[in-house]
Each structure stands twice: as C-alpha cells, then as structure tokens.
Amino acid sequence: MSPFFFGTSKRRLFGVYHPPRASRGGERAVVLCAPWGHEYIYAHRSMARLAITLAEAGFHVLRFDYYGTGDSGGNSTDVDLAGCRADIGMAIDELLDMSGAERVSLIGLRLGAALAVEVAATERGRIDQLVLWDPVITGPEYVTALFKAALNMPIGLADPRTISAARGGDHEICGFPLTEVQRREIAGIDILPFLPKLPKRWFALVTQPLGSHDALRSALGGTECRDDPHFEQIEDCAAWHENWPQNAGNVPTDVIARIGAWMT
C-alpha cells in the first residue's frame, strides 16, 4: 500500500495505491470513488477493506480523496461535482500510468457512485466495468436523506443546520458545511439518463431500500440479464451510515465479498 499525493499544485489529491497481490494474467485496475461528508468518514474503513480485497484478487487499486475532502487540498466548501468528476479523471490517469492497464473499472459508493456514472458515461473508452454501491440515484432523495441524518444525529443538541443569513445562509450536515450552491448542485443529480451510455458490464448493489430503486428498475426495463443482473439487493449493514454505538466500525463483509466476486 502506497499513500501519495497526485494531481496538480492547485488541485492536490491524496490517494492510496494498492498494488496487486496476486497475478491475474494481465493488468486490471480499479478506482474507488468515495462518498461525501460524514458518509465518507464512516465508509473509510470499508473502502480500505474493499481495496485490500481487490488487491488480493489481483487488481491494481487506487482510492483517493476528492479536492476539499479527506487529506486532499482545499476546504469542504470547495467541493463541487464537476471538480469531483475531474478528480476521478485524474485518478484514472494516475492509475493507468501506474498499472500499465489499458482500462479501469470504477466502484462508487453513494455520491461516489453518482459521480462514477457520469464519468463512465462520458469516458466509455477508458472504463471497463462499473459497480454502484448503494448509489445516490436522484439528488432530491439524497438531499432529503442528508438533512434527515443531520436532524437525527444522536448528539442531544439543538439543530443549527441552517447557518444564519449573516454568516452565509448555508447548512451544516453532520459536521460538514454544505453551501447553498452545493446543495442546489447535488439536488440536480439524476443518474437514470446516463444508464444507456454506461459500459456493458455494470451493476448496482444496494443494502438499504430507497424509493428511487423502483425508478432504477423501470429504467433497466427489459435489459436485465438473469445471469448477470444490473441490480441486486443484499442483506448487510450500510458502510456509510453509523448508528452509534451499535454498528460503529462495522464493515459490510458480505457486500465486499460480493463486489469482489462480481469483479472477478
């Protein structure tokens, strides 16, 4: 495992490269696309475990932090979706360069999945496979979930999710500032129009039922292949949600094993 900074001097990104620990008879590479905010914090352990699992299965794996998140440069308020997609592009460049592979697979969790969908749809030539893990499907549903999570934090304090107009009128979601501009941008997410443009081999793996799953199933229409379905629900904990202290630190091992099996 090699942690390092990459990107440009103005947009420095932190990444962790996991070299393959087994031979697959050809270079195969995977970029992991993280969720945002508190979901990123809780999911870090699971994303690291997934990277190790895939490296043990023979993949070159790169997980990284978008600009304004984790150890990367920038502030939380600098995060924007176009920038995150550009960061995924930089991570793909970096991993192709490091691994010698010709194409990469993307695995995205929550917001990372929505970002990965757009990248995969626009860069089909470089994307091999795509895994959407508990994906954000529609922006309004996600924004509602974020505000609900902020409202239900078990910290026993009053709710200052909306900062006064004098201080910008923005929001706080479980410890992370969310500007009104960011909120509006995230609310505009809709991955369904991109589905026809995705690489042939992709699948969504979900642990928590969402209202938008019906729309996703409908969008798939008759394209589902019984042997290699695009949509699968699995009984496991949500890597990105902490119901402290009951599930603190839990890693969804069944999800990780399923992704590993699907990738290989």
Binding site: T69, D71, S76
Partner: peptide
C-alpha cells in the same frame, strides 16, 4: 477512536 487521521468532520485537517 477508530476514525482515521482526518478526524470527525475533517477537523484535524
């Protein structure tokens, strides 16, 4: 605890 080095809410960064 088990939160990695960026800390809760990215506080340590």
């Amino acid at each position: 605890g088990i939160i990695h080095r960026v800390g809760h809410h990215r506080m340590y960064v």
